[in-house]
Design a protein around this nucleic acid. Sequence first.
RNA 1: GCACCUGUAGCUCAAUGGAUAGAGCAUCGGUCUUCGGAACCGAGGGUUGGGGGUUCGAGUCCCUCCGGGUGCACCA
Length: 659
Amino acid sequence: MNLLRLLQQRFAPVLADYADDPAPFVSMVRPAQDTRFGDFQANCAMPLAKRHGLNPKELAAKIAEKVHLQDLCNEVEIAGPGFINLRLRDDLITSEVNRLLTDDRLGVEPPRPARTIVIDFSSPNVAKPMHVGHLRSSVIGDSLYRTLKFLGHRVISDNHIGDWGTQFGMIIYGYKNFLDNDAYTRTPVAELARLYRLVNRLSDFLEARSELPGKKRELEVAERELAATPVPPKGSKDPADKEAEKAIKKLRSQIEGLKDETASLAKKIERVETNAAELALANAHSNIARAARDETAKLHAGNAENLRLWNEFMPECLAALQGVYQRLGIQFDLTLGESWFNPMLAGVVESLKSSGMAVASDGAMCVFIEGNEAPFIVQKGDGAFTYATTDLATIQYRVGELQANEILYVVDTRQSEHFELLFKTVAKWGIAQVDLRHVNFGTVMGKDRRPYKTRDGDTVGLESLLDEAVKEARTIVDLNEAQKADKGEEPLDDAARQSVAEIIGIGGIKYADLHHARESDYVFDWEKMLAKEGDTATYIQYAFARTKGILRKNSIDPIQLLAQGAKIQLSHPAERTLAMQLLKFPEALDAVCAEYRPNQLTQYLFETANAFSAFYNDCPIKGEADEALRNSRCLLAELTGRVLGRALGLLGIQTVERM
RNA sequence: GCACCUGUAGCUCAAUGGAUAGAGCAUCGGUCUUCGGAACCGAGGGUUGGGGGUUCGAGUCCCUCCGGGUGCACCA
């Protein structure tokens, strides 16, 4: 049972006497923000009093009196300017928490209308190895998938992989010109990745070489301009001086930007120039960028050779991706890449043209959305389609074939303009009713507050990241085992340690990611991620392991206890707090789904693990003489373990019974 | 130039328009001859970037200024 919803249902009929639409006031019944104020609070009296010109405290008292609460609460207190503070009856908490013991769904009720929700996440490019940037999308998307599904929605995860884009032409070009056959036979994916990087590097080099002089000139001009600009007196309030100050600031930031740009170009040049073999290649393939684009165009046009190569590469690339997903514990219902929608693209553009939405502009077919200067390009000047076109076709398919009521895109914030245009285009296009939602997230940063990169400036590969995390976790596990040995506890064998390290390491990465509000950028910090203390996966996994340890070391079988009719009883404040926390699991999931925020669940987990640790400290089982109390505590530990395990599972994080 | 995001404790971050703004880390101090110390309890630390406004009530909504970031025509 969802206690919050139950209370809201009790308030609803009474609040209907004071407002035509009581819904917003009903939603002002909410969990108490502070335990001093009880378990729940109703904040609806103040605005309603204002509306009716009544005294808020009197109205609060009147509402509290009218709402049928006697069976739920034993204290109803009016506080402050008109808050109604509610404290649940202990017997209610006791009976509810006992009900959870035999409830597989831990009190979570199915959603009123179950919706069909497509979640689009991860979406790597098969031409490039996955990097740290794919992590957030994968982890957040997977968690939302698991959570919505557990709630009872029909959820379809779709990995919209990039298997048809421009960068695929680079691989084909590389294959045709630079292939190392032995390497390809041995490790095809690694060789393809090498080819991609090589072609990319060469084409970057050539572009940089032609751009650098111009940029340098721009920089010189800007620097001369700055030197020639008189500096206004500091703190002057004269509007003219303020303008001048602004101009100088702008020039400075422009110079900074140009310096960064020239440095980056110089680096691209240096990378190749210092390598005689690559320099020779670059000079021999001076139109490589264009040639690679042509390979893409040929592929799209159905060129037999390129299609054959594409078909040869794809299974290998997909298998490589699969390896990473397996390690992350992520599964997709569908993997419909861009190529899959290719046959539908011409039809999409036709439809947009015939409805007059798409018009030719500078040779490209564009949809112009009011208020946006930049067009939404659905077909390029050379006739090729863009990802905008693919996205439109994908929506058409998901609505038409998959019957989606809702589509979630778990994609980097930096693409928000694209989604804005996409969603507006869809609305104008008038295909069936569907809620489209960009579930955006911020950038992963290094400790230097710049996008997370290796020392050489490359993006960090996802696999090496996972390896590193597991390695770190392993040293912690070994250290801990060494300490355990002193206490004469049974040690874990090597295989068990490695498995624990894998679960702790990957869990740590996932948790660190999920516990940040998704919109904010976050700083990737190894130490914090795998720290043994604080708000980390380890802390919660440890609490879980303790719930198991408690039963194991006291030789208790909870199923047997239940069969014997044992019950949870609440005799200590720590027990009440813990029980109350367990009953809030459904609320936590509601909070996640309201705005698609997994961090609501990590927060719940941390609070629950906290409540359990306090209980563990204050309420021993071993020395307890009262058998009923002992049994009660065992059952509470067992139930806590189930909630922690389930909630971690919804985050895609595994647990171990011993660590 | 246009658009969007952002500014909260020393650091990293929370907080559906609600009460005295909370956690973790770090710092300092306590607990434990009992089930796992990867634990528990406590303390200090804040004009929520500045200034206006809306509201019974603002970190949250609106305006403005300052600082930081991102994106803007044929890459995805």
